[in-house]
Design a protein around this nucleic acid. Structure first.
Length: 327
DNA sequence: CGCCTTTGACCTGCGC
DNA sequence: GCGCAGGTCAAAGGCG
């Protein structure tokens, strides 16, 4: 299982985006790509100073180094979460006992019925209803968009019985159910801001930690955020912004785990990566991952492991050879 | 009075 | 075919 996950990091739809202290902003990779995409001589086009070739090469070397570090940490996270993710069914090749996709199977006919009322400009819904199950259809139809699923956790007061996760959107509760694997009831919400908004939210306390509220967002908002406030949890729309250092989402590009280690100002909130519920030590693992000591040790350990791996060194040599100019 | 929440009933898919 | 479980509906009640 671990091997399957590790193998999936590089070549399966599963991808890991890691931000490791490169920048206070959440997407340092964007800046990196901007650097990499442009030839050395063309960089800094918008700057008043023109960059020399030496500076460009140094920057490129740094970027390469960071990429390598990023890749190492990717593997570490993959190992840390490997078992959990596999159980989650995020690996598209596996056939999990309980699919993560919220729209698989039994929702089909009901979704198609709802489509009759809301098949307007909403790009998330397609006429005919079946297209909603983009998890299975989008692979063949590039025009379809998969339903985006993101999962966030928020720590609350254990005595607080309300299943409310404030994210700035307006939600209408339409159901509550006690599920089998969790004694806490699960609340079902619809986005009440726009009638045609397809986004749904499921909120349930963690079975392991009653002070942890797990909110699962399904779909994307087809309207602007009504009252964007800083520090609130990210909803499905946009998905990228928010205060959580770690999130899992499933979208058109496949399952994505984002761990942002640059956000160490606040307490690290634990994302439940397991379904069924994770072992209790997962939270501890997440805390460790966020600590500088752990990161340092991690890098050293991974560097050691990678350099002692003949496959890695071989692949690295091959990659370097490819980069060398032909003689 | 209108909106929202609650909650039991119903629907649907899946596994046996 | 039947039972189970998740998801949704809709009537009833509460609240401002």
């Amino acid at each position: 299982m671990d091997a399957a996950w590790r193998g999936g990091v590089g070549c399966s739809p599963v991808c890991l985006d890691l931000c490791v202290g490169l920048s206070p902003v959440r997407e340092p990779s964007a800046a990196r790509h901007e650097l990499l995409d442009r030839p050395a001589g063309c960089r800094g086009g918008g700057d008043s100073k023109s960059m020399t070739n030496d500076e460009a090469m140094i920057l490129e070397a740094k970027v390469t180094q960071m990429s390598e570090e990023n890749r190492r940490l990717t593997e570490v996270i993959a190992r840390l979460y490997g078992g959990q993710i596999a159980r989650l069914g995020l690996d598209g090749s596996a056939s999990p006992p309980r699919p993560v996709s919220p729209l698989s199977g039994k929702k089909r006919s009901r979704e198609s019925m709802e489509t009759a009322n809301s098949c307007d400009a909403n790009s998330n819904r397609h006429q005919g209803g079946d297209a909603d199950h983009a998890e299975s259809f989008a692979a063949d139809d590039g025009t379809c968009r998969r339903i985006k699923v993101s999962r966030v956790c928020r720590r609350i007061d254990p005595s607080d019985t309300s299943l409310v996760v404030k994210d700035g959107y307006q939600w209408r509760k339409y159901g509550q159910k006690v599920t089998r694997d969790n004694p806490s009831p699960r609340a079902y919400f619809r986005c009440a801001f726009a009638p045609s908004c397809p986004v749904k939210k499921k909120v349930q306390r963690s079975a392991e930690d009653s002070s942890l509220l797990v909110a699962t967002y399904e779909g994307e908002h087809n309207h602007p955020h009504p009252s964007p406030r800083a520090g609130e949890l990210p909803a499905a729309a946009g998905g990228a912004g928010g205060s959580l250092p770690c999130s899992i989402s499933i979208n058109s590009s496949g399952p994505t785990i984002t761990l942002d280690l640059t956000k160490n100002g606040g307490a690290v909130q634990v994302i439940e990566a397991a379904h069924p519920p994770p072992p209790p030590d997962l939270k501890e693992v997440c805390r460790e991952v966020a600590s500088p000591e752990f990161r340092t040790a991690l890098v050293e350990q991974m560097a050691s492991a990678l350099t002692s791996d003949p496959k890695f060194t071989g692949a690295l040599a091959a990659a370097i050879l490819q980069k060398l100019p032909e003689l």
